[in-house]
Design a protein around this nucleic acid. Sequence first.
RNA 1: GGCGCCGUGGCCGAGUGGUUAGGCAGAGGCCUGCAAAGCCUCGUACAGCGGUUCGAGUCCGCUCGGCGCCUCCA
Length: 430
Amino acid sequence: MRLYNSLTRTREELPPAPGPIRMYVCGSTVYQRIHVGNSRPFVLAMWVKRWLESQGYVVRLVHNITDVDDHVYEEAAKQGIDSRVLADRATAWFFEDTNDLGLGRPDVEPRASETIPEIIALVRELIGRELAYESQGDVYFRVARFGEYGRLSGAQLEDMIAQEPSELKEDQRDFALWKSQKAHEDAAWDSPWGLGRPGWHIECSAMAEKYLGPDFELHGGGNDLRFPHHENELAQSLGAGRPFARVWMHNGMLQLDAEKMSKSLGNVVTLRNVLDVWGREALLLFHLSGHWRQPVDFNDEVMAQAAAQAESLRNAFRSPGAPGREEEFRAFEKALNDDFNTPQALAVLHEWRREQKVGLMRRGLEVFGLASLAVPDTAPSDVQRLAHERQAARDARQFAQADELRDQIEAAGWEVRDATGGFELVPRPG
RNA sequence: GGCGCCGUGGCCGAGUGGUUAGGCAGAGGCCUGCAAAGCCUCGUACAGCGGUUCGAGUCCGCUCGGCGCCUCCA
């Protein structure tokens, strides 16, 4: 299995099975329903986990929930509710929506608010190493003192400008590890520097170490996190003497009208909405259709194409098929083991579909959480009765009556298809 | 301005030097009482211009166009 590593800009071989593969993936900030764009790193992480496990690896996936953040305070204030209440509510939405993807859960889903002691310990360590300094209740990371700063993003320190300008910083390029409590912030934690809360980046360094140890194999997240978030994570952990992540996977952004879907631009479609309108299978097929590193456009047309694909795959399981030979699975493995090339793997699935090798199909689809496509449909008894009546009419060559019964079946939401030696009932799409 | 990515047939989208990617849509046909599903056939695709090479979508250069990051963002 090899994967493209953003840090080294090459494809790198993963250690052989059983690994272990320790993975950390940056999750969402919870203050509203997540959008479809947010589903991409989650889906990718779960697929990689499921695939590696099916290949005999031992995988531990940590996916964090950022529940302490400026946005949480702001949104809570706007709604006039307690910020912890909002964070808990949005966390519940997050679980609800991602559960409906039907991919299972990461092994650990820690929250920033539950990792405060570890965060404080790490900040103290960085201060001890003179890589960080306290300034009126805030603590900042001393960027210029960390020689490798810029390695991940490829940026030169000299080209960098301020990150959140502040009078309290020695150098405007420094970033916050700890922020003192502000007047409008209704939740704060005690620390050696007074009441406050963690900066955004430090939580990931702390949580990754807490649940995976000082070094691990894979780190994922959206491409937009490469700088400053991941650059800062790397600086904090490397600065504190941890080896940290070896391979960095940055997924491409979802685009809406050729523009990145993001909360700040306001051009978002919630995951909830997509699940309700198109269903999980079409959404997963949509994610499958583009390589994880490429940006992908999200719109009704591509979703309709994904839905059509789901239907065509499902049809394969509605007629008799063959298991397929074990060695034929190699083509599927080859695609996924080469930088997790899901469009290629999808092409292999379609090849099997044409050949009616449903055994192989089922095995491949299972990896992507799409085994549901193989589940047979069961029509309600009244629809089945109508279908039997229609069959009898057909056998008696009373086609007008048969067609009328077909109309009734369709009105009930089912489609009847004549097959050799009988009929099939399938739900009408939409 | 700095760093990086991308431009493939109506649409989506793989493919890092040499035999058809694949899917969706469309056309024709087979099958069917009629359908549906399925199957068969059909598209001189690689932004443009140079260059390297026996040979380039695939390497190099330039041009045009698009996107991301450099500030919160998956």
